[in-house]
Write a protein that binds this DNA or RNA. Structure first.
Lengths: 122, 122
DNA sequence: AGTGAGAGGTTTCGGCTGGTAACCATTTTT
DNA sequence: AAAAATGGTTACCAGCCGAAACCTCTCACT
């Protein structure tokens, strides 16, 4: 494709550099975060660490199976940490890792966009 | 896409409620943007309007069927516009709408996150 | 001891979606 | 004429998504 404009503009290359390249940071991010429930799960865990059922209520609408699968996936990506906080009354706590917490600006921009462009409910 | 029922996404998905009481802007945004290829498609169209094959090459990795379906969905959400620019040599041009262009900060934050947290991964 | 609520999930079973490959029609280029 | 480029469609299938049911364990109440 078009990239032989080496000496022209340094500024505009920032927006074009991932076109035609093999690895795309947007696609990479979308592969992890681009699921229906992943952003809101992380958002709720950034707000505060929670147990499974508490989290399910906070996400509000997700099934237990999908939440279970999602948490497993997110833990695999190193975005969420699972800790058993009690054995006898068996209790678990999910929280975001540093890596997961770093997604806050992304999720916040999604929240803002949704609020200004999708607020059509009532 | 399939028939009439599934196209209710176009209008009624905007009324995604979090099971009764609270409407969640993050979930609503994720329902639209939370697909593997949607963010990068919009990103490439924000960079410049393109024809189908040009866009497919720019997205790099997407199949023609998935691109076709995605464009149809995004057009239904009012994020992408399709214009036939020539009939004799049949040419179309896809571009972002104002609404689609307003996603730029969201996509940019995804790009930044991927660049700093996913570089050199698969 | 029995019942029910709450925590933390798993199982089952479809339907929808994402992905590959093949195919099609038209026009331009070689 | 043959090849390539443009803009897709169709067939087919693996896998993910989602609703509902089910499961174990503990605690509280009676």
């Amino acid at each position: 494709m078009s990239d032989t404009a080496s000496d022209s503009e340094t500024e505009e290359q920032l927006e074009v550099w991932c076109a035609g390249e093999e690895w795309c940071p947007i696609t990479a991010t979308a592969t992890i975060l681009g699921k229906k429930w992943h952003p809101v799960i992380i958002h709720r865990l950034i707000a505060e660490p929670r147990g499974f059922n508490d989290l399910q209520r906070a996400v509000d609408g997700i099934s237990s199976k999908v939440l279970s699968d999602s948490l497993e996936t997110l833990e695999g990506h190193g975005l969420v940490a699972r800790e058993v906080v009690s054995e006898k009354p068996f209790r678990v706590e999910y929280s975001v890792t540093d890596r997961g917490g770093s997604l806050e600006p992304v999720i916040e921009s999604m929240r803002e966009w949704g609020e200004t462009h999708l607020a059509a409910e009532g």
